[in-house]
Amino acid sequence: METETRNTDAKGRVTLPRSFANATVIVEQVSETELRIRKAVVVPEDELRFAEESAAPLSDRDRDRFLTLLDNPPAPNEALRRAAATHLKHHG
């Protein structure tokens, strides 16, 4: 990535590199002294899809494994026991 120094005008505007011409951008204020500008693709609201609409179905093997684990869950490991104890301590 190249670094360039550019000056803003009296209204705080700066000219972006030509590769940003006619692009939709996201301007994110990272800090008081830093902005991040990224090209963006805008999707109209009526074209948004729920994650469930694009999720691939499980294979027969994965489905069977999932159902088996629901019926016969494994014993909790140490990390799960610690997490549960911490949760109960704060919320119990």
Rank of each mutant, 00 (worst) to 15 (best):
E2S: 10
E2T: 12
E2N: 11
T3N: 11
E4H: 10
E4D: 08
E4K: 14
T5H: 06
R6Y: 01
R6S: 02
N7S: 10
N7K: 13
N7R: 13
T8S: 12
A10V: 11
A10C: 07
G12T: 05
G12E: 07
R13A: 03
V14C: 07
V14K: 06
V14N: 04
V14F: 05
T15V: 15
T15Y: 06
L16K: 00
L16M: 06
P17A: 03
S19K: 08
F20A: 01
A21E: 09
A21L: 07
N22P: 06
A23D: 09
T24P: 04
V25K: 01
V25T: 06
V25A: 04
I26W: 00
I26F: 02
E28C: 05
E28D: 12
E28Y: 08
Q29N: 06
S31Q: 05
S31P: 02
S31T: 15
E32Y: 04
E32F: 03
T33R: 08
T33Y: 07
E34T: 15
R36D: 05
I37A: 01
I37G: 01
R38S: 15
R38L: 11
K39A: 09
A40S: 11
A40V: 01
A40W: 03
V41I: 08
V41L: 08
V41M: 06
V42R: 11
V43S: 02
P44E: 09
P44K: 08
L48F: 07
R49Q: 14
R49S: 10
F50N: 15
F50K: 15
F50D: 15
E52P: 01
E53R: 05
S54D: 11
S54N: 10
S54F: 08
A55E: 14
A56Q: 14
A56T: 09
P57M: 06
L58A: 12
L58W: 05
S59A: 01
S59W: 03
S59E: 02
D60L: 10
D60H: 09
D60P: 13
R63M: 09
R63I: 01
D64K: 13
F66W: 10
L67C: 06
L67Y: 11
T68C: 04
L69Y: 12
L69V: 10
L70K: 10
D71R: 14
D71A: 14
N72W: 05
N72E: 13
P73N: 04
P73R: 05
P74T: 04
P74W: 06
P76N: 02
P76Q: 02
P76F: 00
N77D: 13
N77H: 03
N77E: 04
E78K: 00
E78F: 00
L80V: 14
L80M: 12
L80Q: 14
A83T: 06
A84Y: 09
A85K: 08
A85P: 02
T86N: 13
T86A: 14
H87E: 13
L88R: 14
K89Q: 14
H90C: 06
H91N: 12
H91Y: 05
G92Y: 05
